[in-house]
Design a protein around this nucleic acid. Structure first.
Lengths: 244, 244
DNA sequence: ATGAGGTCTTCCCTAAGGAGAGAGTCAATG
DNA sequence: CATTGACTCTCTCCTTAGGGAAGACCTCAT
């Protein structure tokens, strides 16, 4: 039983290129190589290829498939890893479908209320006043702090708001992905955020920032705002700020 | 409002590399480029970037995002396309999860019954006889045709069976994917299949093959075998064979 | 021996950037 | 005013799993 590349490719339903590739990366070696360089495969190789293709169907990377043959024990682990991966993907796609449906609904109604899906700021000072009303009232009632909403520069406000939103989104994603509070990438993200604030007229030191996160944690309005976006976020932010 | 690359990257929560990339492919151009080559962006660009990132989150390829800005009308179409794409992916992942569960179950029971999940042939002539029994009886009863199961060469039989299974799988996938019966890739797959058969002692012309597919369609046992794998497959095979 | 079909290696290409090198630039500080 | 530190430029290579093509070489059947 000596198969040429074409034989094997036909039998297994893959391309000859694929066989070359697997040879090159050492995933499936020919049982024999002629003097002219022709590759020949045997039954063993056909069976091994079948197994390779099984794992490939499960989206297992070729490198890992190779390890599967080298180290028996990782089989169950790999399969379970793929399983949880698929679960997460399904979750994600279901959420994306929801997002799409919302967007299509907005479009269908003729509204352009995509601001909730993709925040690009508000068009006028009055819109900003509306958006901030609740927060301003809360600060006034709870702390007797006055904010002058007439001093708003719409463009600048939009810019700051977009940055703030994206910053918070990123921190939430770090938290969701289990990135530790003292990870460099987290720290850099915060530093960039502070740098950006300082550069744009909002003087804020690392200490100030730490105090701010603590304030957000203690204040009901702000804590709930953060926690409604991502459970644990208000607490995470404090820990990150403490480690700066 | 003139943002440097770092400003914009911070605000939007992307890397500077990403901005370069978008510039290079013409997806997001700077509003201004200094003499030294420094890129500067404005508010418009920030908003555009926000929109780009929204579509990117939905796995829309950058080329298509670019088209979205050029041709207004494709927005709904693109969103709906992504939606059905996600539905299909969810479907696929759910099936893969089932496959994994089956495989893990086999492993847990200590059995190695993976032959149904990844066919690699049988170990002995007797196993083959068992597997073929039903088919042999059917042929005998319905057509009075005798098959000598003692003449079986196990290795060769395994090889032929693996090829046959993969061939049928490929045809089923063509059908599922809406590949037309006269598509070159379909035709080539069949030609390779016939070539393989001829090379391995099963003389069969294109005409013979056409007759065989017709027989499979008319014979209950074989038609149901094909149709249970993929609805429409028995019919598809005849059409393909007629166009060879 | 010849022709047809198979096979070899090598190079470039894909999507969306990441990593890093080496050189040039900007703005603020001493 | 010059230095310095942070920032930015272009360039090349790298990632997955092969696809496509070029140009040369090989094998087998007639």
């Amino acid at each position: 039983m000596k198969f040429t590349v074409k034989d094997l490719a036909t039998m297994a339903g893959v391309s000859i290129k694929t066989l070359y590739h697997y040879h090159k990366i050492g995933l499936l070696m020919p049982s024999e190589v002629g003097e002219s360089g022709y590759r020949y495969y045997g039954l063993q190789e056909l069976k091994r290829l079948q197994e390779i293709l099984f794992y490939k169907e499960l989206d297992v990377p070729l490198v890992e498939i190779k390890q599967l043959f080298d180290e028996e024990s990782t089989r169950v682990y790999t399969l379970e890893k793929q399983r949880t991966l698929f679960m997460k993907k399904i979750d994600r796609y279901q959420q994306l479908i929801q997002t799409i449906d919302m967007s299509l609904n907005y479009t269908r109604k003729g509204e352009n209320m995509d601001n909730q899906l993709m925040f690009k700021g508000f068009g006028s000072k009055d819109e900003w006043k509306d958006a901030l009303e609740e927060q301003v009232n809360h600060l006034k009632e709870a702390y007797n702090v006055e904010l002058d909403t007439n001093a708003i520069d719409v463009d600048k406000m939009n810019m700051m708001a977009i940055e703030a939103k994206n910053f918070t989104d990123q921190m939430a994603e770090f938290l969701r992905n289990g990135v530790k509070y003292d990870d460099v990438s987290v720290q850099n993200t915060v530093k960039n955020h502070l740098h950006f604030l300082n550069k744009n007229g909002h003087a804020i030191s690392q200490e100030d920032y730490l105090n701010q996160t603590k304030f957000f944690l203690q204040d009901d309005f702000h804590r709930q705002m953060l926690e409604s976006q991502q459970t644990g976020l208000a607490y995470y932010l404090v820990h990150v700020a403490e480690t700066l």
